[in-house]
Design a protein around this nucleic acid. Structure first.
Length: 156
DNA sequence: GGCGCCGTCTTCT
DNA sequence: AGAAGACGGCGCC
């Protein structure tokens, strides 16, 4: 299914009611227009996505077993544990999974996350308040953090 | 404060 | 094996 927004169409795939894929249009620069959802269903998945953008944090729907290495799953699981509206640094995440020095590897694992929005990799920021990166483009990450009232970033 | 280099760990070529 | 990546820290200008 697809959710149409003023920033492009968000494609979400699922199997047996479990989300197994999510793709956002890549944005290298923020579109001039404000973000808005144009066409959105009322199923659990759609409403979850809508809630993420509106900053009202609904319950995350069931996710399919993610495909990845053991290390990546650990990272993703740790990310999934970040409370709504809060952020965590790559370093803290690394420490949480027992590899305090594997921060670089953690970042790498984030980039391979197939379920942005559902696994909130946008809540992972750099230790100095930097944004780090985002697979679909930083504008999404900035917007999402702003929507969740994250103050750990430099909202200029 | 900003820039650059090195350390560290996992994954792809 | 070698290279690269969504980092962190420290030293230097």
């Amino acid at each position: 299914m697809e959710i149409e927004t003023t920033w492009g169409s968000i494609a979400v795939e699922w199997l047996d009611g479990r989300v197994c894929g999510c793709a956002l249009p890549f944005l290298s620069a923020p579109p001039g227009k404000p973000f808005a959802i144009v066409n959105c269903g009322d199923d659990p998945v759609s409403s979850f996505v809508a809630s993420v953008f509106s900053g009202t944090g609904a319950k995350c729907p069931a996710l399919a077993e993610p495909h990845g290495t053991a290390f990546q799953r650990q990272v993703w699981q740790a990310i999934a544990g970040i409370p709504f509206g809060q952020t965590k640094t790559y370093g803290e995440l690394a420490k949480d999974i027992g590899r305090p020095k594997a921060v670089r590897a953690v970042g790498s694992a984030c980039g391979k996350n197939l379920l942005p929005l559902f696994i909130p990799c946008h809540r992972v920021v750099g230790s100095k308040g930097g944004l780090g990166g985002f697979s679909a483009g930083l504008p999404w990450k900035r917007f999402l953090l702003e929507a969740e009232h994250a103050r750990a970033i430099n909202c200029s």
